[in-house]
């Protein structure tokens, strides 16, 4: 009997063990491991896609690099590409440390998955992409249309509510694989695909004939995107949250990757504290005082990240729009350091 209970305990530990390990002190775990394990998109140019050398590039991967640098002093990241369907489970079971994969914050995801959204890195909206030759100018005219939806996204219920509210019907085709999702639209299986506006813009621009497709003017839902972490590690959550704020504050203060050394030396108390010339910015969140300096010198500030991945400096050339700083009329706002 004794042997049996030992066996049972070992078996149970084997099953529950990995879950328990995931709730350890993440900052310490990442430091010991020497790299941050980050869940990213399987391939969405601008927001997370591998380059020729297999390194992930994009707005979200740069947030992984920023967090890794804040903890480790250098942008050492292990990339784990995840489908929309698998991403939250991977984070829950500890396969990844942080998820930066175009994830929309919702009440259910924040409150019932054991996860938390520390910050936003892109304010998006959900929209509809159609073929221009349909002659449709707004979503009201889409009665009876077939809509392709990607599984595991908020668009699955947003689209239903939108069509129901307008009193028109639609047929959904829900596809898990990202590639099949887009090819179903381009082959004409669906009249409409729905997703975040940024993603629709990218899909349209990277298609063979962008003029043949148009994004409808209706924005059917807000879609605030940001990195996600598990909810049981406040210290790590703070690191992710304040790294995001540091990127915004740096832009606000005019600190860039190029001038960060020079700015650190300036005779300005705020700058000296922010960049770690004088102590104070690290201790409270369990990092060294030079963490902001490291992040900016390795990754750049928010506007630099935005520009090179999705903004003017990239083929996508998305406007800053509501992702501009609050002082420029946008929504990006950082609390005080």
């Amino acid at each position: 009997m004794n042997k049996l209970s030992t066996t049972l305990a070992v078996l149970a530990a084997g099953i529950v063990g990995p879950v328990t390990a995931a709730s350890a002190d993440m900052v310490e775990t990442v430091t010991e491991r020497g790299e941050l394990v980050c869940g990213v998109h399987t391939g969405l140019v601008g927001f997370g896609a591998p380059d020729e050398s297999g390194e992930w590039q994009g707005l979200d991967p740069d947030y992984c690099r920023a967090v890794a640098t804040a903890i480790l002093g250098e942008p050492k990241v292990k990339w784990v590409p995840l489908s929309a369907q698998a991403r939250f489970t991977s984070l829950q079971n500890g396969e990844i440390d942080m998820l930066a994969q175009n994830s929309t914050m919702t009440l259910a995801r924040d409150a019932s998955l054991g996860l938390t959204f520390p910050a936003f890195n892109f304010y998006d909206g959900q929209g509809l992409l159609i073929r221009s030759d349909l002659g449709v100018t707004e979503s009201k005219e889409l009665d009876g249309a077939t809509v392709c939806i990607q599984q595991g996204t908020t668009s699955e219920y947003v689209i239903r509510n939108h069509f129901t509210d307008m009193g028109i019907s639609f047929t959904p085709v829900v596809i898990e694989s990202g590639t099949e999702f887009f090819s179903a639209f381009f082959s004409g299986r669906c009249d409409v695909i729905t997703s975040d506006l940024s993603q629709l813009a990218i899909v349209r621009l990277t298609s063979e004939d962008p003029e043949a497709y148009m994004v409808l003017p209706d924005i059917i839902a807000k879609s605030p995107l940001g990195p996600v972490v598990r909810g049981d590690d406040k210290a790590f959550e703070n690191v992710v949250k304040w790294t995001s704020y540091a990127l915004l504050t740096a832009e606000e203060l005019g600190v860039t990757q190029a001038n960060v050394d020079e700015m650190k030396m300036q005779d300005n108390a705020d700058l000296q504290k922010f960049l770690g010339a004088t102590p104070g910015v690290g201790e409270l969140i369990g990092l060294g005082d030079d963490w902001v300096y490291n992040v900016i010198s390795n990754v750049g500030n928010y506007s630099e990240i935005f520009d090179r991945n999705v903004g003017a400096g990239s083929p996508l050339a998305l406007p800053r729009g509501q992702n501009a700083l609050w002082s420029d009329g946008g929504l990006m706002y950082s609390p005080l350091f």
Binding site: A84, Q85, F88, T89, Q92, A108, R109, S112, L113, G114, C148, Q151, G152, E156, Y157, V173, V174, I175, E176, S177, E180, A184
Partner: peptide, 21 residues
């Protein structure tokens, strides 16, 4: 079927799984 958009048990369930966690 989930890979090609057929709404079978797993497809319907995956969405439920995703929404409820």
């Amino acid at each position: 079927g989930v890979a090609v958009g057929y709404p079978d048990l797993v497809s319907a369930g995956n969405t439920a799984m995703n929404q409820t966690g």
